[in-house]
Write a protein that binds this DNA or RNA. Structure first.
Lengths: 190, 190, 190, 190
DNA sequence: CATGAATGAGCCTTCATTCAT
DNA sequence: TATGAATGAAGGCTCATTCAT
């Protein structure tokens, strides 16, 4: 209850950073959005960059948390990959504004916080690679470079932050399944 | 020879926009990079935004030009798709700075030039969809939504602007072939 | 009390625009005058031009307001003309800086605010013409073109912004009466 | 013939200073007008201000020259005044751009050249005052302050630079005569 | 808590002028 | 003469942040 004002501000930042970009959003914009004077924002946050830090780190943490859960499961690599793609794609598309900020704006962080995001992202990538490597070793997947495979799959899902629109022809889960299928079986008929 | 100063400036912009981002790059930065006073830049360009316009539109034009060449060829849809992926991936990775600016900064353009980029991008996407639709109709490809397939494949290649590094373990062409393979045949053993 | 800073700024602008001209006055000059940083001025105004707009429109409004009062009176055209000349001349000379800005700088406004000033000025001229036409119709005044007569009389008074100096040989009201007399009776002995 | 380029430049300055104002006119504007590069202008002039100096001093000189001719004539003060008003009004209206610059922009000159214009203007005013004083002494004119009378008459004529338009209802000479009449006889029926 | 005045650094851009060619 | 590259100072304005009230 007490933090509610902070969350209003963070939500304003999410919406505005998403829409206009981090640099193009002013503290004035945020203050207007929540109905405060811009000086008052500093009772809740310590800087504009802190907002970006929190948004991006919350965003990446969510991805990591979910993937860790999947990795730990006692299922085949193929099933893990299916679930990972499904999770990642729906998470991107369920939360376009935050994901957009994570993917497009985190490089605007200054060195230290940027490093934190990069580390989390790296960890996330490692979890992906692990799944794929597991499948390659077990013979489920064709052999190849697990890291590059992971990056490629991730890229294909991440990109959705640029094109997916709610209320379009398909639900995001449908698309997620389609994408999963493309990855698992390829696009060509055997 | 005569335009050389303009090209120096444009090149400086490419490097700096890539490294620091469009908003975080000042005209002073560009001037320092080329060894002029910042006022002097305006003999060669009319505004900072014009630089961004030129860089992004040159970048997208290159992709379009190459893809149009492929689309026109008298080869199977599968071959077109292979060539398209190869072309797109290598173009992204051969020219990381420009592609980064196209993909990350073009949304900082103001409305009119932004619209131009969006139109060109749309056209590019249509060409991709066309190839895929062709393959679906001919029975080469599994049926599905061509546009979503195109966006997914594109995303997987675009993302390389974030992770590909020259001088790494593999040449970009090798990776491009690997990615093509994953898309064509899937990641799973039959 | 609360607006006092805005008024200080406006007053500074009046003094400086009068003395140096609108273009030759910088925001720095104004800031120095009121003892603020130039960026701080923008808490009170939205642009340099806005200052000019307000000054000029306030100035012309005063003239219009006073003349409307005179026009409505139930007195002869001759008396109205006398009062109008007296009012206009003393208003010009009581407030040289503002009038100077109105007369010398309003053409520096951009199109839309300039149009507003021109409309108000036109209205003011029409009121003058009305008085004169009235006198011509009633036979008080020699017949002629009322608009040109009005412009000529106005010019003779306006010009005082260039030469009248407080503390000179005569009070402005004395001069105003003299000017009125010249207009009413001419300069020649009958 | 050789000076023709200089005169082109001066003419461009007259047109542009009149239309946009001295400060709002750039050397680039002038260069464009005459079809040179702005650097090339400096083969003909030494500075932007010099242009303003020449234009204003040429303008005031013309007025002085003409009035001196009138003052020297062996005619009555009344006739001199009539001729002076006619001359001044037609000169203003025959050459609106130059007169506009003289009347509106000469205060933008820096101290020394400004002083020259002020001296010439003062001399011009003295000639007017002389005529009027002569008439007052001879009993032709009502007695009063000759300088103030002169300034008032001048103002009424000068103002025409703001409102007179060629091709309007009346020729400027007609208006000049009307103005003369108003001054000589007053606006009221006896 | 909230305000809003104030800061000070920085931004993009303009411009009169100079000068080597 | 004419060019056009280059300067360097200045201009109006924005903005994240601070702080007394």
């Amino acid at each position: 209850m007490e933090n509610s004002k902070y969350h209003e501000i963070a939500e304003a930042a999410v919406q505005l950073f998403n829409k206009k970009g981090y640099h193009a959003t002013s503290m004035q914009d945020i203050a207007d959005y929540v109905g405060l004077q811009k000086g008052s924002l500093y009772h809740y946050i310590s800087s504009k960059e802190e907002l970006l830090e929190r948004i991006t780190s919350e965003s990446i943490s969510g991805f990591v948390r979910e993937l860790e859960r999947i990795v730990k499961k006692d299922i085949s690599a193929k099933e893990k990959l299916e679930q990972a793609i499904l999770m990642h794609f729906t998470r991107v598309t369920d939360n376009i504004p935050m994901t957009t900020i994570l993917l497009r704006e985190s490089f605007s962080l200054s060195d230290d916080p940027h490093e934190l995001i990069k580390k989390a992202t790296d960890h996330y990538l490692n979890l992906w690679s692990q799944i794929i490597e597991e499948g390659m070793k077990s013979g489920e997947f064709k052999s190849g470079d697990p890291r590059i495979a992971a990056l490629t799959i991730l890229g294909s899902c991440n990109w959705a932050y640029r094109w997916y629109q709610e209320g379009g022809k398909y639900e995001n889960v449908e698309i997620a399944k389609y994408v999963t299928n493309m990855w698992i079986q390829g696009i060509i008929f055997v």
